[in-house]
Design a protein around this nucleic acid. Structure first.
Length: 297
DNA sequence: ATGTGTGTTGAC
DNA sequence: TCAACACACATG
């Protein structure tokens, strides 16, 4: 359907993959050659790259979040259109992390999840590391809950990995860091599921993305349980035994979460049913727990 | 092969 | 401080 003579007759830029990027109406948002959107913020004459995003609004939200952390509440509130109001907890969350960490989350699209988890973890005195419970060793009784995660599209997608939020990874699944800092050897973790089946996952740290991940073996779990985005996986421990469980998201009824970016509602999960796990493209994914621990200056 | 995000420049 | 533009370099 190309116009015969005139090249691109986009009166309003209706073509999605036009070679010619259109400037964004959002501050800090720059078009990418492939039709996606980048976000960037400046600090001390230096550009800080905030990542690339499918949707312009996502990039805008990333910038707004960064602005909140870098420049404070007022600066962020003065954006047009005004970004979704951040509550007290979010301010807390932002200020309890370094700029670098926030940028890491934004670039990896994990900010929303990290914030989400932090809400559930408010001053939760985790008993796992507390005291030396003498009875555990001899009492296989009830495994204690470690943490759970609502899996993201990426977690059940082709990447074949589950990102473990940093706070949980470091608290419950400590890894040995290579002496040089580069070589971090992964470990093999075994988990028992509801039916008694044992699953072995390779657990390691991805330096490139600053993420703790379950890799090898994870995709088999996803397939067997037919895990879909929005479903929940939970981890328990009893002594040295590890357990994994999962729970499907409610099929009917309200979605797990609707992320509203400015005027745009974005569903975090695609309603895929029928056993297919091949989601094509998930729009607006502000998910993907992960977390960066890249704390630099 | 594709896409990221850095280098760079010139406006505001 | 900011974004437009080009493309070196990651990434798969």
């Amino acid at each position: 359907m190309e116009s015969s003579a005139a090249s691109v007759v986009t009166a309003d830029g209706a073509d999605a993959e036009s070679r010619k990027p259109q400037p964004s109406r959002f501050k800090g948002v720059v078009p990418q050659p492939n039709g996606r959107w980048g976000a960037q913020i400046y600090e001390k004459h230096r550009r800080v790259w905030l990542g690339t995003f499918n949707l312009e609004e996502q990039a805008a939200l990333a910038y707004a979040t960064a602005a909140l952390r870098f420049r404070g509440r007022d600066a962020a509130a003065n954006l047009r259109p005004p970004p979704p109001a951040a509550d007290e907890h979010e301010f807390n969350f932002l200020n309890s992390h370094t700029k670098s960490e926030i940028v890491d989350m934004l670039r990896k699209h994990t900010y929303a999840d990290e914030l989400h988890y932090s809400r559930r973890t408010i001053s939760t005195t985790d008993p796992t590391l507390d005291n030396n419970s003498p009875s555990i060793a001899a009492t296989p009784a009830a495994p204690e809950h470690l943490f759970e995660k609502s899996v993201t599209p990426s977690d059940v997608g082709k990447l074949n990995r589950l990102v473990i939020p940093k706070q949980f990874a470091e608290k419950h699944f400590p890894l040995q860091i290579g002496g040089a800092g580069d070589a971090i050897k992964g470990v093999l973790l075994s988990f028992e599921d509801r039916s008694g089946k044992v699953w072995r996952f390779r657990y390691s740290y991805w330096n490139s993305s600053h993420s703790y991940v379950l890799t090898k073996g994870w995709n088999r779990f996803v397939k067997e349980k037919n895990l879909q985005a929005g479903d929940t996986v939970s981890f328990r421990r009893s002594g040295k035994r590890l357990y994994i469980d999962w729970k499907a998201r409610r099929r009917s009824g309200p979605p797990v979460r609707t992320v509203r970016l400015f005027g745009v509602d974005i569903l975090e999960t695609a309603a895929v049913h029928g056993g297919g796990c091949g989601g094509k493209r998930v729009i607006g994914e502000m998910n993907g727990v992960g977390f960066g621990c890249g704390k630099k200056a």
